[in-house]
Design a protein around this nucleic acid. Structure first.
Lengths: 160, 160
DNA sequence: ACAAAAAAGTTGACGGATCAACCAAACGGT
DNA sequence: ACCGTTTGGTTGATCCGTCAACTTTTTTGT
């Protein structure tokens, strides 16, 4: 069934890199494809799309909240937001409780473009997930959780 | 930091992004960690490490072969190789059959640094894979295969 | 209430990845 | 043998992601 099953100890070089390599490649392709679709359908960038998604799902969110939830770099969020303001895709509304911060909101134009990109993005997402069985999806998410956890542990250990 | 679990059926916004988001984040963390380890243990970059791995596994390989096998950008391979030559980590040997090309080889210094980075990298790899069950590993690789395939199909369809 | 620490955002710098243009060598069909 | 095409490699432009420094505001501990 699984001739090339992997035992931990032996598989040296080729596997050595497998996880990182493969993830890296998939990530790159995934990114490139999403970027292309977004550009073609709505003329927006992937970063902008991600901000849009955060606004859509949480409504009136601040940059700091986005950073917390997604681990995006706050510098990049700042720049992306700046660009989106200049293009009129979003507006900011100063927070009353915190003078440093501001919440983000769609403009009509921004929301329009977001809706314009959505079908293609959703189709793609469905196609991607649909290529996996329910079990594969579930196991994959579990595996990703575990990998993130393992990374954190490695990080801690190597600080000893 | 992996609390908000997603069920398969509610395919909407939060999940919408999940695959890309999660892969993106894992990739970023994985990369950053590998880069840190490589810098600390051997003072080399991730790109340089990847070239080393290719030389190690295939011995006397040309840039073009590396590109074929890994999908790395050929421009980046060219620059990385250039840097490694300048630092004396590898040497090139002109190919006899093709005047345009050259094979890459370790120098002693390069091989030394590679060996120096290896234990930590191998430990990390073992820890990462070890955090998954054999089944999870297997399913994950299968899933990655399928995702790459699905991406290609999406690409083809959107060219119609 | 006040100083120290933390948090929100901005900005600059830098390395990595991507894309396109380009040169030179090799190949292939006629 | 020759010309068009393909392949190997280099380089420049550009964009994205990451890190660090800095400003301003808020929170916290005493």
């Amino acid at each position: 069934m699984s001739a090339d099953q992997v035992t931990d100890t032996e598989f040296d070089i080729p596997l050595q890199q497998m996880v990182t390599f493969r993830l890296s490649r998939i990530h790159a392709k995934l990114n490139a494809q999403a970027a292309r679709i977004l550009k073609e359908t709505a003329g927006i960038s992937l970063s902008q799309w991600r901000i849009f998604v955060m606004i859509e799902t949480h409504g009136k969110i601040t940059p700091a909240q986005i950073v917390k939830r997604t681990d995006f770099d706050k510098g990049q969020v700042s720049r992306t937001v700046k660009g989106m303001l200049k293009e009129g895709l979003i507006v900011v509304e100063g927070s009353e409780s915190d003078q440093r911060s501001h919440t983000l909101e769609f403009t009509d134009k921004g929301h329009g473009l977001f809706q314009q990109a959505r079908p293609a993005m959703r189709t793609r997402q469905t196609a991607l997930l649909g290529s996996l069985t329910a079990n594969e999806r579930q196991v994959m998410f579990t595996a990703m959780d575990k990998l993130e956890l393992a990374m954190e542990q490695i990080e801690e250990e190597s600080r000893a």
